[in-house]
């Protein structure tokens, strides 16, 4: 029974990883860009949300129920930061040298933004963990002897709905088709009338939204935020993305959940110190044995990588 409880916990924890993993997957599959600011955007949403809820919202909006609004503004901050990153990384990706490290340029820029954002948050809010004044995260329901925390269950549902929406968007809308055209062949896409400079910001907006949502869900679920909260989640989301398969949205979903399960089962059997080795080990083994991941296909980024 304890094991089943751990599996349920893993599923619940996995939903935050899934959201961030989907953000990573979007930028990699469409832009062939490993965006290291993603965990930082997640952290920005949580910390800005906390800051507003703690120090009070502007315009006298503060009240006992100000926290949802604060988190929404946090999410907005994450979207704005993401667009800022787009302005300084991807706009300049069309580089001139044409050698094998050119994909490194936006990646390195994103490392730069990681340093900037994380340290700015530290400067304004300090390095300590903070309690988030949200609803009690102890609300639990008991289903057949298994305890499920209500906020986690709600988060799980929200995340799944969001991803269904995202998949629908990629498949059925004009923007989605444009994004897929860019993913397949950026040069051909611009011939077909898809303007990269107008559609690429959409990817970053979606990334910011996903990270903002994940940050808000994290803050509510764990009741605690810190400038370091992105590192841990980021590593697990990356592992989830790779295990599920680079470039596949459903792969990222499955991978995020798998990593959640691996984490909980590792804690159950080996203790918390072994989680890092288990999660990154899973990533490394996947890369070495099956680089396309469990559900990925080889086609993504072919020729560009």
């Amino acid at each position: 029974m304890l094991l089943v409880q751990q599996i349920v916990n893993g599923l619940m924890v996995g939903s935050v990883y899934v959201t961030v993993a989907v953000a990573f997957t979007l930028t990699i599959s469409i832009l062939n860009f490993l965006n290291f600011t993603i965990p930082t955007l997640f952290m920005v949403a949580g910390m800005v949300g906390w800051g507003l809820a703690y120090f009070g919202l502007p315009f006298g909006l503060s009240g006992p129920l100000a926290w949802p609004l604060a988190l929404a503004v946090g999410g907005l901050a994450s979207v704005l930061c993401s667009l800022l990153v787009e302005r300084f990384t991807f706009r300049y990706m069309r580089t001139r040298h044409g050698d094998s490290t050119e994909h490194a340029i936006p990646l390195v820029s994103s490392l730069g933004f990681l340093l900037i954002l994380e340290n700015l948050i530290r400067i304004f809010y300090g390095s300590d963990s903070q309690r988030f004044p949200g609803p009690s995260s102890d609300l639990t329901a008991q289903i057949g002897g298994i305890f499920v925390r209500i906020p986690q269950l709600v988060s799980f549902a929200i995340v799944m709905l969001l991803i269904l929406g995202l998949v629908w968007m990629m498949k059925s809308t004009r923007i989605g088709r444009g994004l897929r055209a860019i993913a397949e062949n950026p040069d051909a896409a611009s011939i077909l009338g898809v303007e990269p400079n107008r559609i690429v910001p959409v990817v970053f907006m979606l990334t910011g939204l996903l990270c903002g949502l994940a940050g808000a869900l994290f803050a509510v679920n764990y009741g605690e935020v810190s400038p370091q909260m992105g590192e841990d989640i980021g590593s697990k989301a990356i592992a989830g993305m790779v295990v599920g398969g680079l470039g596949s949205l459903w792969g990222a979903v499955a991978g995020g959940i798998i990593v959640g399960l691996v984490e909980m089962l590792t804690i159950h059997f080996f203790g918390a110190d072994a989680v890092q080795v288990a999660v990154w080990g899973a990533l490394l083994v996947t890369l070495l044995m099956r680089p396309q991941g469990l559900f990925g296909h080889n086609a993504i980024g072919k020729g560009k990588l």
Partner: peptide
């Protein structure tokens, strides 16, 4: 055998496993 982002991720994961 890996290239591009895959290699970056692989080396990054290696460091994390070593530390772990």
């Amino acid at each position: 055998r890996l290239k591009g982002v895959y290699l970056v991720l692989g080396t990054f994961a290696f460091a994390e496993v070593v530390v772990g």
